[in-house]
Simulated scan of single mutants.
Amino acid sequence: MTELQMQIVHRAQEALASLQAAEAEQDLHLAHIRLGELESLARTADEHDLDVPQLRPYAPQVA
């Protein structure tokens, strides 16, 4: 696993935990921020051909 992939996985784990907490607290603003962060991480992973399973739901959709 490359350094970039390790960092993306780590940040994704933190963002997912924060998203779950925000949803549990019904903090829609924080949940929206975390969704954007996850989408950004998924795009970065995709651009570098990295497979990060926890980011698959947030990956860019091809039309």
Rank of each mutant, 00 (worst) to 15 (best):
M1I: 04
M1C: 05
M1A: 05
T2K: 15
T2H: 05
E3W: 06
E3V: 09
E3F: 09
E3A: 08
L4G: 08
Q5P: 13
M6H: 14
M6V: 09
Q7Y: 15
Q7K: 15
I8H: 03
I8L: 09
I8T: 02
V9G: 04
V9S: 08
V9T: 07
R11V: 06
A12W: 04
Q13A: 07
Q13R: 07
Q13D: 12
Q13P: 06
E14R: 08
A15I: 00
A15C: 07
L16S: 09
L16E: 07
L16K: 11
A17D: 06
A17K: 04
A17E: 13
S18V: 03
S18K: 01
S18N: 06
L19R: 06
L19G: 11
Q20D: 15
Q20C: 14
A22S: 00
A22I: 03
A22L: 03
A22F: 00
E23C: 04
A24F: 00
A24R: 00
A24G: 00
E25S: 12
E25A: 07
E25R: 10
Q26V: 13
Q26A: 12
D27S: 01
D27E: 08
L28H: 13
L28M: 08
L28A: 12
L28T: 15
L28Y: 12
H29L: 11
L30S: 13
A31R: 01
A31E: 10
A31Y: 12
H32M: 15
H32Y: 14
I33K: 00
R34K: 03
R34H: 04
R34G: 04
L35K: 15
G36H: 07
G36S: 08
G36I: 10
E37R: 03
E37F: 04
E37T: 05
E37M: 04
E37L: 02
L38E: 00
E39T: 06
E39D: 10
S40G: 11
S40W: 10
L41M: 02
L41G: 03
R43H: 06
R43E: 08
R43N: 05
R43I: 00
T44W: 09
T44K: 15
A45S: 06
A45I: 02
A45Q: 11
A45H: 07
A45T: 05
A45D: 02
D46I: 06
D46R: 13
D46P: 08
E47L: 08
E47F: 13
E47S: 10
E47I: 00
H48E: 03
D49C: 07
L50Y: 09
L50K: 01
L50V: 01
V52S: 00
P53T: 02
P53Y: 00
P53H: 01
P53N: 03
P53R: 09
P53V: 03
Q54W: 06
Q54M: 11
Q54S: 04
P57R: 10
Y58P: 09
Y58R: 14
Y58V: 02
A59P: 12
A59N: 09
A59G: 06
A59Q: 13
P60H: 01
P60Y: 02
Q61A: 15
Q61W: 15
Q61D: 15
Q61Y: 15
Q61C: 15
V62T: 11
A63V: 02
